[in-house]
């Protein structure tokens, strides 16, 4: 009986996911000229500072253990928010890149392909980083790196600027500020 109930519940979940996917499918491609209305701002310098091992070591050496753990948890939560934002932005940029992949100009198509691949790499790294960060919030003393999220995000934003320069040069600076 339990097996049958579980299988029926699973089938219902699958149907639910499919209906949701069918409804959400027609998300429009964000316009480069209004990119800032879709993306969430990321202060890359602050983000780098939060995951800098030297900064962490300095705090570890100069603060009592209890104070360090409290502060480190707060820093990890802030880092988690930055990772979430980069992952969110990468999903937006992936849609921008995917639309530009069909461009007639091979240079634009190549830049778009690179942007899409960076966006996907970032999504993967962000997923792993979030798992690590949740683990570190539980154990703030542990020394585990959150990976290369900042580097990939920097590559991604550079890729976006490159693509915008090719498509719409007037907006390159604005687009760079949007992410």
């Amino acid at each position: 009986m339990i097996t049958t109930a579980l299988l029926i519940a699973f089938a219902l979940v699958v149907v639910g996911v499919l209906i949701r996917a069918a409804r959400r499918r027609r998300d429009p491609v964000p316009d480069l000229q209004a990119l800032e209305t879709y993306t969430q701002p990321v202060d890359l310098a602050a983000f780098r500072n939060l995951i800098d091992p030297a900064e962490e070591d300095y705090l570890r050496e100069n603060l009592p253990a209890g104070r360090f753990h409290t502060l480190q948890r707060e820093r990890l939560r802030a880092t988690l928010e930055y990772v979430r934002r980069t992952a969110y932005n990468s999903a937006i940029l992936l849609r921008v890149g995917e639309a530009a992949r069909r461009d007639q100009n091979p240079e634009v198509a190549a830049a778009a392909r690179a942007l899409v691949n960076d966006a996907l790499r970032l999504r993967m790294n962000a997923m792993l980083a979030m798992v690590v960060l949740y683990g570190r919030i539980v154990m703030p003393g542990a020394r585990i790196s959150v990976g290369r999220v900042t580097d990939i995000y920097e590559n991604l934003t550079q890729g976006l600027v490159r693509l915008t320069r090719l498509q719409d040069p007037a907006y390159a600076a604005r687009v760079s500020a949007a992410v």
Partner: peptide, 15 residues
Amino acid sequence: LGFGVFASIELAAVA
């Protein structure tokens, strides 16, 4: 979508 719909309903029916 078509594949998923009929596979899930068939799963429930065969269960």
